[in-house]
Design a protein around this nucleic acid. Structure first.
Lengths: 191, 191
DNA sequence: GCGGAAGAGGAACTACGGTTCCGTATAAGC
DNA sequence: GCTTATACGGAACCGTAGTTCCTCTTCCGC
């Protein structure tokens, strides 16, 4: 197969890093509308070089999105281990996840469409995250802090909604308000 | 000025209606990605004819969006006059507004970007709607049914979020779940 | 140092979709 | 019926942005 071939040549490695960084920066700033030529220029390479590493724009975006998405799992795991209070753990996770997305327009779009678009290989990442999130939700439910009818699939939905307020409403901070209202809505009716 | 010129020729009037209906149908089904040629074909006319009435795709979309947006005001006004219970009025308005958007992908996108995109002339429609919504919100607040810190600008934000769950999550009904949680979050902390 | 495989660059190619243009058709008034 | 302003159709045009391709360069093992 196309195996893990020998390491990249030194210059290629260097360029790959610059490309990745530039792509991250431009996608964050301009969303998925960022152009391949601009990314290449920003990285100081030609488009041909860019296409050698990432055969399509989508593959470039996907690589970046997966990388950032995996941070979600790291964050959730860290919170699970750190925060005692079951409700606080859930609330903090949601806030931290939203903050992760805050300054990256392309990532915002990716998060919203995570369930309606085929991001090559994202399914693995998604189930890894789901496992941790599920534990955090169930812990909060067992403690009676969160409505019992909250289902794991709804986590993505709530994040999608929160992210939309960032993406579409260019008013830093509104999303916090949305999340606050949602969190209030998640508290047990009998709290 | 370009005044209200004489009425359209009979055939032109007929075509205008078919164009409007086709555009509405295709934008609803395919979102803003619906193509001008397809719309013309669906209406049984050439693109030239389409462009005679609507000089740009954006103008066509805007006309449709404004039309649908105005329904919002009608709905809100009707609810204000009909529903006694202050909380119920607010909740019903949100549900009805969301339902209005439900089967129209382009309109969903328009609603989400209503504050970040220049929809020619939408400002008027927006302030007409705002007046009614404000009364409904304040009535609910005076009754102590809804958190006192809810601000009128947040209505659009909540609808944006709810709409996003329709647009991105292709699961009819999730949005109702989102709205339910939000509505719970809106109830007075002291309710 | 040399040979060649791996890499770089960027002009050119392509597909797509909105928009224009103009020759032809037709409604509507005399 | 005739005239003409209005309208129609759709091929052609154009800009945009992703992708390809081919020539030239550079790293790296012998």
């Amino acid at each position: 197969m196309n195996a893990e071939q020998r390491p990249l040549r030194a210059d290629a490695q260097r360029n790959l890093e610059r490309i990745t960084a530039s792509a991250q920066a431009l996608f964050a700033e301009r969303g998925t509308a960022a152009q391949m030529e601009d990314i290449a220029a920003h990285a100081g390479v030609g488009v041909g070089t860019l296409y050698r590493r990432f055969p399509t724009k989508e593959s470039l975006l996907t690589a970046l999105v997966r990388g950032r998405f995996q941070e979600f799992t790291v964050i959730a795991t860290e919170i699970e281990a750190t925060i005692e209070d079951p409700y606080d753990a859930l609330a903090t996770m949601m806030r931290r996840h939203a903050e992760t997305v805050e300054d990256d327009a392309a990532f915002q779009l990716a998060m919203m469409s995570i369930n309606s678009f085929q991001w090559e290989g994202i399914e693995e990442d998604k189930s890894a995250l789901n496992a941790v999130v599920l534990r955090i939700i169930e812990r909060a439910q067992r403690a009676g802090a969160v409505r019992a009818d909250l289902r794991i699939e709804e986590y993505g939905m709530l994040m999608c909604a929160t992210t939309a307020t960032m993406y579409f409403l260019h008013d830093r901070g509104v999303w916090r308000r949305h999340l606050e209202i949602v969190l209030d809505g998640l508290r047990s009716a009998t709290a």
